[in-house]
Design a binder for these strands. Structure first.
Lengths: 349, 349
DNA sequence: TTGTACGCGTTATCAG
DNA sequence: CTGATAACGCGTACAA
């Protein structure tokens, strides 16, 4: 029954439901019902309460509400690397769906160099918040770490494919994308291909996608030369040499960032793209997706992935016992001005 | 004193402190003290409690803790547009600082097309969570909407400058950047300049930065032609014509995305960059910042802005009554291969 | 050192 | 229609 409180150092305290009730001259319960717009409340008093709430700038305390309602009304999203345009757009998509379904999405995030402990901490933040569901967007966090929570809270993975079939998830069908772009390069007539390997620690999915491309190329008896992308300077040097000596007619990259950079380096070395050598990227989203840039790449529906992942999460909140469900979304291959048929003098494998 | 609970539809319930205590054969309070590593607790029992907590996979309920401690231990970040590389990197910077200071950062986010109501909703989410402080990264959300909360919760603005001096904030010194890049273009000898205006609704800061550039150019008696960036196709058409007719020798863009696209369009139109026409961008972060692309631009310390903004927020939690504090961080001008002296035949203003 | 009792702000139940 | 009252899970004086 404390009516007085000790003022902290902050000038003003967040008004509580009690404050609103007092101002409206009713009890907490009546105020609560009025604000929740439940039916069994007098229109007069209800209006008084709402007015008082507005005057005071009342915002309900989610902690208290979460405690008694046993649900927080928020969905947590963990995004390993927000500075990646792909995941930024995924997050935007989730937000759009959230607005439509009247839930709040809050996210924890980091950068590409997070280690497992740091990501665990971020996930624990979401668990501590008692998010009603969690969407995990990280292509490096080992799923076994998530398993203990799987029985307690709906979880869905999101982004690039994850094999663990204990989990639900919404993914880009990247194997299909890798096949599409490899096939197209073969169709164009290329048989001598350089592929750029990303540093494996940075992204499992990038490594895997290039491996898939390599496998596919080999089925057409192409000659595939691998360039280690670990050291950027060395990689650029190697690529220019390969192209200049006509040992490859196309350079395939794990991302569009890399492709863009390589195109620039090649042109600076007086090699014409695509006349002398073609270049391809992957996972076009954001600014690098503008048509006029013409990077040949696999364009992915990032926002759609976010939307669907959130929808899956919400569905699992209502029905937590359903079996894991996996959704693969297709991207589109777009051959822009950075790729064309190999030059006539190009070697054949 | 309820010992039994009704199992919901979720297979397993989150274990509570009570569960841990029961498993360790002690009371809730003892368990609490053991987990909080307070001193007045027997080493034996403490270990038993911690073991039980580990066995059960206990994660404290943040709502309950927040309620009793009257602080949530989380800092909220609202980011209007996470798909923008700038804010993605700002968020990464905040996260780095948060890890160092042992606080959790959770964020709400959207995309560039959020309206005021939607952003209000997102902010209210953070207030409802009772975040201990809030960092607002939005160059369009009107500060008056924030004022009511200013007295209740430490807030700091972050990103591009905001004039309202009731607020603390950490910003890029973009006026300086605008001056630097304009001055440099003048120094290179350009006197006929096209500047691309962004659609004003999209970003106040972009509009303002171009206006600053324009003002600065006028001091050197340059001829400034404005191109409305609202319709991309029309803008591109206009720019190509201006360049082809030698009515401008340089095109200045509000962002690097735009610059990159324009460079590509110009080159496709058989205009050499920078030989025939120079192009500049702004706010280089992320993939578009790779040196080899050579976009001439103002490069900004986005991660640093995030770090400092979070540090300011934490400082205000401890000392909420301090007056508003503003921090301006400088970027670096980098003239890459996209800008050079105007061609000899370039007109003079 | 340990347990008991209370309160944080809210919703839900049940008497009036 | 309204107002007490009991939880929700946790930290913490206070008593043992």
């Amino acid at each position: 029954m404390t009516d007085q409180r000790d003022e902290g150092s902050m000038p003003e305290r967040n008004p509580t439901l009690f404050d609103v009730a007092k101002a409206a001259g009713v009890s907490k319960s009546a105020a609560s019902r009025a604000l929740l717009r439940q039916s069994d409340v007098n229109g007069q008093t209800a209006e008084r309460v709402r007015e008082a709430a507005r005057q005071l700038g009342y915002v309900p305390n989610g902690a208290a509400r979460s405690l008694v309602e046993r649900r927080s009304g928020i969905v947590g999203a963990h995004v390993r690397d927000v500075s990646s345009p792909f995941y930024g757009i995924v997050l935007s998509g989730m937000q759009a769906q959230a607005a439509a379904d009247d839930v709040s999405v809050v996210s924890t995030s980091g950068s590409w160099d997070l280690d497992v402990d740091q990501e665990s901490r971020l996930l624990k933040t979401l668990i501590t918040l008692r998010a009603d569901a969690i969407v995990v967007c990280s292509s490096t966090f080992p799923t076994p770490y998530l398993v203990p929570f799987l029985k307690r809270i709906p979880m869905v993975l999101c982004g690039w494919p994850e094999d663990d079939d204990r989990f639900s998830g919404c993914f880009i069908d990247e194997e299909d994308g890798a096949h599409q772009i490899a096939d197209r390069i073969i169709d164009l007539g290329h048989r001598s291909v350089a592929i750029v390997r990303p540093p494996p620690s940075r992204s499992r999915s990038q490594a895997r996608r290039m491996e898939t491309i390599r496998q596919r190329l080999l089925t057409s008896h192409s000659v595939v030369r691998e360039v280690d992308g670990g050291d950027r300077r060395v990689a650029m040097h190697d690529i220019v040499n390969l192209a200049r000596e006509r040992r490859v007619t196309v350079v395939m990259c794990p991302t569009n960032d890399t492709a863009l950079e390589i195109i620039d380096v090649l042109r600076s070395s007086n090699l014409a793209v695509p006349e002398d050598v073609s270049v391809t990227g992957f996972d076009t989203v954001g600014p690098l997706g503008t048509p006029s840039l013409g990077i040949s790449s696999f364009t992915v529906p990032a926002a759609e992935v976010g939307r669907r992942a959130l929808a899956m999460a919400l569905e699992r909140i209502d029905n937590p016992d359903q079996p894991p469900q996996r959704l693969l979304l297709n991207g589109n291959l777009r051959i822009g001005s950075s790729a064309a048929a190999p030059p006539a003098s190009g070697r054949r494998g």
